[in-house]
Nucleic acid binder design. Sequence first.
DNA 1: GTTGGGAGAATTTTT
DNA 2: TTCTCCCAAC
Length: 644
Amino acid sequence: MTDFSAVLNAEQCAAATAGGGPLLVLAAAGTGKTRTLVYRVAYLVEQGVPPNEILLLTFTNRAAREMMERAKEVAGPEVGYTLSGTFHHVCNRFLRRFAERLGYRHDFTILDRDDSLSLINTCAGELGLKYKGFPKKEVIASFIGKAANRAATVEDILKEYESELLVEAKDILRVTDLYVERKKAEGMMDFDDLLVNGLRLLCEHEDVRTLYQRRFRHVLVDEYQDTNLLQAKMVDILAGHHHNVMVVGDDMQCIYTWRGADFRNIREFPARWSGCRIIKLEQNYRSVPEVLAVANACVRGVPEAFKKQLRATRQPRNQPRVLMLRDGNDQAQAIIRLVRRYLEDGYSLSDMAVLYRAHFHSIELQMDLARTRLPYVITSGTGVFEQAHVKDVLAFLRLCEGPRDYTAFKRLMGMLSGVGEKTAESLWVKLNGSFESRNPQVRQALSAALRPAARGQWQGVDRLFAEYHAEGLGTKGAEAIERFYEAFYRSYLYRAYENPEKREEDIHEVAVQIGTVKGGVPAFLQEVALLTNIDHEYEQMEKNNEPTLHLSTVHQAKGLEWKIVFVIWLAEGMFPSSRSLGEAESDEEERRLFYVAVTRAKDELVLCAPEIRRMRDGGVFFCKPSRFIKEIPRELVRESYGLR
DNA sequence: GTTGGGAGAATTTTT
DNA sequence: TTCTCCCAAC
């Protein structure tokens, strides 16, 4: 039995060992929120709660995995049977079991962002709505997303934007309606559908609702301030029987309102759950007091529902630096110099991170790092599993497992020379809308329908389908991928893409990944759309264990910490982003985002503000230092100008 | 119907 | 500068 009072402070311990009933834990940055949740899970298991009756909802899969590993260390391996993961992940689990209730097949496919964007494009094209001035697919996707995450209709959302719309709302609705219809017809769900349908399942099917309500004796939620209406409702329902619901969050760190997050969820939690206890974690173990002083200064005036005092526990050290620089190149140089100096001081590269508002802010730095041969990892915009060449390979596997996967079919056929969208479509019609890859006659029919040049290329793949089923390669996904690569894909890769060597590596990497999944290819395919680059990277870093400098957006750095943190491009228009200027609410959100960035730092914080932006076309653009820097009282920082 | 070239647009944050 | 889309030539 663990002595919780020995390893946790009084507040953490009270939260971790609380009895049943609703509980709101307000955990300011760096106060041991994760630690508290980890020990909460361990405590429950030690108290005799069966792990599979605990539900732990997190914001990323990585957070879930980290917490589970640590909880296992405390309370033993059986903790691993806890159901944990993101809302999307958990909904996926529910839906794989009960999708039929909603008129889907249990092997529905999940559309990632790219898939849904191109489907929107197709819909708009078919309706002849692609004239100049018609909203781009990204814009339409944002309408659809906003509607889903706020439990509204697209029509409602369009009304809000009425004044900005240049085209008839009716036309946009025709596209979104067709999009919904197509998804349904092909049995596909996008990310939003997972949440919407997960919730529908609970609301509309009493037996399913009762099943899960009774099963989950304890529901724990991390990062509760970033939940949207659907997610909050889902939590309320799931905890509706046992009432043992513990949510952890900090309204000052709400940075996803643009995605539908609504901090009213956290503010009104005590009102929704009568008898709710509130515990505040206010002792900060992460940052030196000088960093906390800057953090507190930047969010002064931002409304906060629950007043929290961040109490420093660490010894004073150095004040944060503010570097005023000429441009992005100087900024990159300054960072590299400082990194070197910190290395001389005995820090490791993996103790350091560079954070920024948007991915493209890091380009100059990336180039300079590569030139100076400092190893770095970047949590890039597109995940490993979203890249075209990886999706190509997965299309083959999808078709091995699911005969009705039209998307995969189109993708795979499109790799044959002389075959494009139209040909693929007519082939699909000839096959009556399914490709049963284990049936030799069906395969024969497809081969026969191909034109000679394509048929030659197809032979290797055709044979591979036979081998896949005969040798049960579904349980040996890595081998299936390698064979597909050898038999067919390599030649396509070198023809179709630039930098094929780099892409080749990715494919071998995916083969390795697939080998680590229990349940082989089918299980992997059901989850792959929900795996993000962060999850992947985490494993990669563990594997080769080489210290690397970390580059990340502030959003993706949430929940992480480093000894030394650089925040770059603190210039008006960059951070805060010009896209968000003008609206009062987003000023506050940018501020909270800056607060999150600052509070990632343990020992040293470096804030960089270049004054010239060089545009792609060679033009220059002067920008003022960010308001977030200007507002910091000067006595709290060490300020310096230029490269020194 | 497919493919590649050339013109044109333009830079958030993500499950 | 880089990506995306459109159109014209196979």
